[in-house]
Amino acid sequence: MKNGEVLLDVKELVQYFPIRRGVLQKVVGYVHAVDGISFDIKRGETLGLVGESGCGKTTTGRSILQLYKPTSGQVIFDGMNLVELNGKKMREERKKIQMIFQDPYASLNPRMTVEEIVGEPLKIHKIVENSEIRNKVKELLELVRLNPAYIDRYPHEFSGGQRQRIGVARALALNPELIVCDEPISALDVSVQAQIVNMLEELQSEMNLTYLFIAHDLSVVKHISDRVAVMYLGVIMEMTSRDELYSNPLHPYTIALLSAVPIPDPEKEINRKRIILEGDVPSPVDPPSGCRFRTRCPLAQEICAKERPEFREVKPGHFVACHLVREITPGVFRAEI
């Protein structure tokens, strides 16, 4: 159980959702929410998963947790393929993988007190004696910097940030190894965002947690992640270490995304070049052939429509899915646009 070994290995994960129409509920098509993605997360690290809304980030997180049954692919957690586990074994395994939800107003049952919410996982997995649950919940509340005196309150008596802390306490109750953070701060005020992110970082080092951090805010991801994966329309486009991604992005999509991040320096902000992508994200019901990004890529060529680019390791630890990456160097690419 050393840090650095692979904790979660996702292989060719595919998640389609059928679209049903008519009285007989015939399947008329599929939403290609996640279309063959592979990545791994090492113990103790944070993998940031970024992308526009609707690109399949959340679905990826939920498929890993088996909240949706994956269409195909493997999710290997700690040497075990979660996709193949039956209900009972999966429930056992859930102790080790937990989740923090995006909307703190929706993720807490309004009819349960904090004690019931945070204590529920303890009760179900019989982590502590029933008489000890209250004390344990108080401990957990202190851990997330909440006043334990609030233990008998209901969720609607808290602010957004406080609720998110309750959500974190619930996730921590089982002492998990991996936590999938599904945009845990995007529903919060900017001032509160920083508090929650810092708390998550502190908890990570205190409890040796591994995070899959899903977000659409590139600055936050830059702050918290060790490695970053960029997703577009159900596919990972580029994945590498944080510093490499932000200093030396290779995929045209990543470059365009990064050029949209505001720089808090007016002079630089005026002088830099922005890459404006044309059009909208295509529908995941009928995604473009070949490379998913080709319809909006300023460099798209014939091959991009014909073949789906392989997710290749072009440098040690730097994976890119683009036909043109061999030919373009970042400097040249920028000059061309």
Partner: peptide
Amino acid sequence: ERDYVLAARVIGVKDRNILFKHIIPN
């Protein structure tokens, strides 16, 4: 479809208990 029902599944609550404890009371 609420998140707290998903949250209950993530925790490992059994389906029947999810129905009676999380869904029906709400």
